[in-house]
Amino acid sequence: MKIIEITKLSKNYGDFQAVKEISFFVEKGEIFGFLGPNGAGKTTTINMLTGLARPTSGEIIISGQDGVKDIKKVQRIIGIVPDESNLYDELSGFDNLVFCASLYGMGRSEREKRAWELLTRFGLDDAGKRPFKAYSKGMKRKLTIAAGIIHEPEILFLDEPTTGIDVKSARQIRELLKALNEQGTTIFLTTHYIEEAEWLCRRIGFIVDGNVIKVSHVDDLLREAQKENIIEFTIEKTSAVLKSSLLERFPGITIKKVSDHSVRIGSTEKIELMPFMKFFAANSIKISEARIIRPSLEEVFVKITGIEIEKLKAENEGKKKWKKL
C-alpha cells in the first residue's frame, strides 16, 4: 500500500530547477532511502513533502491526503527530523519534548508520560533535566529524533540523521530507527552514508541533479551489482600501458584504476586468478595483494550516480566539494 505518492513534482528557484518532475512512491511500513550527492535535490524534496517548501508543480499524496493543499492535516501524521538538531538550547531535554508534544495537541499527562518514555528509550533519562545546550552531538541528535516521534507519527522524515556524530551514537540511532520501523512507522530517510542505507532501507531512490534516476529494492540493486565478478590487485604501480596490455591479453574484462597502486578487474564470467598472476610475473610487476571484491551498495551508487566513492567520502567528512565526473 502506497503511503506517499509523488507525481511529476518540480521545484524552481527563479531560473534554477532544483527538482525536475520527479515521480515515485513510498510503501506503508518500509524504510525508504533517498540518496544523492550534495545539491542533488534531497532536502528540497523533503521540504516539499513536509510543507517547508511549496512545489512549483506536481502532486503529493500522503496517507490519502493532498500534501500540497492540505499540508496542515498532513503535518499531523508526519514527524520530521531535520539535518540540524534544532531544539531549544535553554530548555531541558524533557521540556523540549513536552513543548513539541503540545504543538500536536497532546494533553499534559499524556505528553509528560510520553516524554519520559522516549527519554528512557533513547538512553537520555539521566540527562532529561539538563538543558539541551549541555548535550553532546549524539545526545542532541537522539533527542531531535525523539522530538520527531513524540506524537507517534505514521511517517517519519529523517534528513541525514547520523551525520557528524560519533560511531557509537550513530549505531544506536540506526538500531532505534530499525526498532521504530518494526513497530510500524514508515521512514523516509536521506543519508550520505551508503552502508547506513544498505543496512536500514528496503527500497532506495537515487536523485542526481534534481532527477530521480532509479528506484529499486536494495536486494535487487545488490543482486544486479553482484552479477559482476571483481578482483582487486594491489601492485607496484599502475599505468596506461598495463591497462592496454591486460585488455589485449584478457579480452572481455573491464579494468578500473582504483589508485596508483591498485586496479580492479571485472568480468561477468568467473575470474581465474592464476592467469593474472602469471601475466603480472611475466611483466615483472610485483603483486602485494589480490582480493575478491563483493560489490556493495556503494558500487551501485557510483554506477548509478557517477560519483566516485572517495569523493563521496570526502564530501561526507566535509573536506572538499564533490565534482561530478
Binding site: 496542515k72 531535520p82 531549544y88 500536536y104
Partner: peptide
Amino acid sequence: KKRSFERLLLAPIS
C-alpha cells in the same frame, strides 16, 4: 537563525 522556527512552521498549526 537557529532553525528552531522551522519546527513551529512544520507543526500542524496555522
